[in-house]
Design a binder for these strands. Structure first.
Lengths: 246, 246
DNA sequence: CGGAGGGTTGAGATTCATCAACGCGTGTGG
DNA sequence: CCACACGCGTTGATGAATCTCAACCCTCCG
């Protein structure tokens, strides 16, 4: 099973970064590839974690639910992303559900190899640490967003991230998930999401279907902040709005 | 500087758990103890992280702010807790502020020793991983709370955690921070916090000053969920409300 | 004594969720 | 080939929940 070649199809999973061939082989040898239909529940709150899921194709979400039926999306995953790595080190049952958003293929990496390797390969444990801290940073931004940002600002910041992720240069980029999903991820209803998008037009940001178009490269700078600016290739250019603020 | 004896005053920092004497010594040798007055800002959003802060006495908070002056509390720390460990592995500037809530003493552990040790001592990197995943789990609950929980439920869950933390047996326990702080941490105003406390009285939970009193040991079970139940000593007793739900 | 900070209470304003209806594109079955 | 249902997104009207603002009480402390 040579899956490594597969990784060329998308960003190389951070889990395998700088990892010795040896360790990569050990992981892949005991992992299995599995295909799931749309909306299939892979993990439920309260389950004991058994696998790390590496998305090969399709998309998943992780989320929490309460008895009244409310859902809070924690993350939305695309090919190359992993989930449940963090949960394994929390101890105890999973605090989250994992579900496919579309038909998906995922690589199931057993808990045992993860927990073994973490003590035997420091590069692997550092990779895990980097992954989890990245998730945690995201979570911080989510908390921040829901406490002190308006729906408009939440969307703006989300778009800014996607813009930076997708290379920063093009004035057009894609919404990687259904609007409903994004809305819930941002902690609002589809209705307010839609209404906020309308407001955004007057700021030079238009959305048609899943295509986001900017009037100019600085349209989203309004939504930037000090720690996100560092990710921006234009951070040090003199027309960076964030820099102007100082 | 023999600080290890200090650790008897509070829970042993998870950072040092199962760590060799050797490694502990290496850390302590290059760390310094520092005293700060109340409301002193130790780290600002955008700063590059220089230290891990281990709280020896007093209390700190980590939080984000926006230009309109809004604050979103991420964590509140007591003696034995650490912060900035996660930030160091995020890469880039700090997304959070760190500030003392009261006069405090903290141990400053330089970034360099952390980043060195993480590659040289797997126990240390696993400790970090456990710490960060615990933070992340908390963050998930915060996200969940603000999306799909009422103020009442948020407070109830917070109280439940404190109750479990403080040993689960006594019907009285303490609110470890000022109400204002807790309110902001839970994403609400002091006013709604106060009003929700009044509602809680009819559920058998009364608060006077910082003393929380329960009518009976099950008063908070309403606010439990599947992953938190596992922490509860009474989880498997037949009168556990959560268990009854199934 | 007087001021400051924390907490509570009340009244009013605002914002977002809810509910309902509609448009549009797609797929399906008669 | 048409009719219909369904999922997704949008729009409008309504209502409820929480924030805001203001006043007040209390305790602590100079």
């Amino acid at each position: 099973m040579n899956l490594l070649s597969e990784f060329n199809h998308f960003k190389k999973p951070q889990l395998f970064e700088k990892l010795s061939e040896e360790s990569q082989k050990r992981i892949l040898e005991c992992s299995v590839l599995k295909k799931y239909e749309k909306n299939r529940l892979l993990v439920q709150q309260g389950d004991t974690p058994k696998f790390v899921y590496l998305v090969m194709s399709g998309s998943l979400k992780t989320f929490r639910i309460n008895d009244e039926g409310g859902e809070a999306t924690i993350r939305m995953l695309e090919p190359g992303d992993t989930c449940m790595e963090a949960v394994m080190f929390m101890g105890g049952p999973s605090p989250i559900n994992v579900q496919t958003l579309t038909e998906s293929e995922t690589l199931l990496i057993p808990e045992r190899i993860i927990k073994t390797l973490v003590f035997e390969d420091t590069q692997f444990s550092v990779n895990l640490l980097r992954i989890v801290t990245r998730h945690y940073k995201n979570a911080m931004h989510q908390i921040d967003a829901m406490n002190i940002k308006s729906p408009l600002q939440r969307i703006g910041y989300y778009f800014l991230l996607k813009h930076i992720e997708q290379g920063n240069e093009s004035l057009e980029f894609k919404l990687p998930f259904k609007k409903q999903m994004v809305a819930n991820y941002l902690g609002m209803t589809p209705e307010t999401f839609s209404r906020s998008l309308k407001q955004m037009r007057s700021m030079g940001v238009t959305v048609e279907e899943d295509k986001i178009s900017l009037k100019d490269a600085r349209s989203l700078c309004l939504f930037c902040d000090s720690d996100t600016a560092a990710l921006c290739a234009d951070h040090n250019k003199e027309d960076c709005q964030f820099c102007l603020l100082h």
